[in-house]
Computed example of a mutant assay.
Amino acid sequence: MPPKKKARVSKRTASTGKGDDGETVSSAGGKRKAAASVGKNEKSSESPGSPQCSHWLMKSEPESRFENGIDVKFGIEDLKALPDQTGCWDGVRNYQARNFMRQMKEGQLAFFYHSNCKEPGIAGVMKIVKESYVDHTQFDKKDVHYDATSKPDNPKWSMVDVQYQRMMKRFLPLSELKKYHLQHRASGGPLKDMALFTRARLSVQPLTAEEFDFILSLEDEEAL
């Protein structure tokens, strides 16, 4: 999930917030230095026969919330403000969300979703610029995402680097997306099985090309 916004090298990357559904989301504050590449002992990122996805939705908290004295806030404007508009998406502590990140390929696009805020929804588009590698925050005792059960010779958690691409032409609120989801469930439209509603607790979610393209088309439409 998104990094936290701390003075250290990558705060968007460090923050662990809660998704709209209550799932812990990471904070991707790409100010931290990248950790070492994923080692041989890391678990496989996918289960046998798992479908490969090429588009994603990733949640982060744009409003201040403190954990252990650290502000885990990280919105799309924070990503945009980082050097090269690039940050690591660290702090993900859900196995399924982690596995999705391990499937990500350089160059793939993801929606930056504002979560756990007054008006959750899709704020912009970012690109995966570095594929899955070890999330160093799991070993940092001062980090809110520290995991005492994870060992350097067998790390549990991974992260990717993302780069800001652009803001949506208009913010797409969760409430509007839900209306389309309900309509499409009845009519068989593109968002009928969207993970935002079928697997809502996940902070990192796969999107089909059809779902991604339909959502992009909404920015040129009047709000539903």
Score class of each variant (00 low, 15 high):
188 G>P: 01
195 A>V: 13
122 I>T: 07
143 D>C: 10
153 D>K: 08
123 A>E: 10
176 E>H: 02
162 V>W: 00
191 L>V: 03
160 V>K: 00
200 A>N: 08
178 K>R: 09
121 G>F: 04
155 P>G: 07
124 G>T: 12
149 T>R: 08
164 Y>L: 00
188 G>S: 00
183 Q>D: 13
195 A>D: 12
156 K>E: 13
190 P>S: 06
172 L>S: 03
171 F>W: 00
174 L>P: 12
203 S>E: 03
148 A>F: 15
139 F>V: 00
165 Q>E: 15
191 L>C: 01
126 M>D: 06
122 I>L: 09
139 F>S: 07
149 T>D: 14
180 Y>M: 12
138 Q>H: 00
123 A>V: 04
121 G>D: 04
123 A>G: 15
192 K>P: 00
203 S>K: 04
185 R>T: 06
166 R>W: 06
125 V>S: 10
169 K>A: 08
200 A>F: 10
170 R>T: 02
116 N>F: 12
174 L>W: 13
203 S>V: 04
140 D>T: 05
185 R>E: 10
140 D>P: 02
134 V>N: 15
133 Y>D: 06
182 L>W: 05
118 K>M: 09
161 D>W: 01
131 E>Q: 08
183 Q>M: 13
134 V>S: 07
177 L>E: 06
199 R>L: 08
197 F>D: 04
159 M>Q: 11
172 L>V: 02
204 V>F: 09
142 K>G: 15
160 V>W: 02
165 Q>V: 13
190 P>L: 03
144 V>S: 01
121 G>K: 01
145 H>I: 10
141 K>T: 10
132 S>I: 04
169 K>M: 06
128 I>L: 03
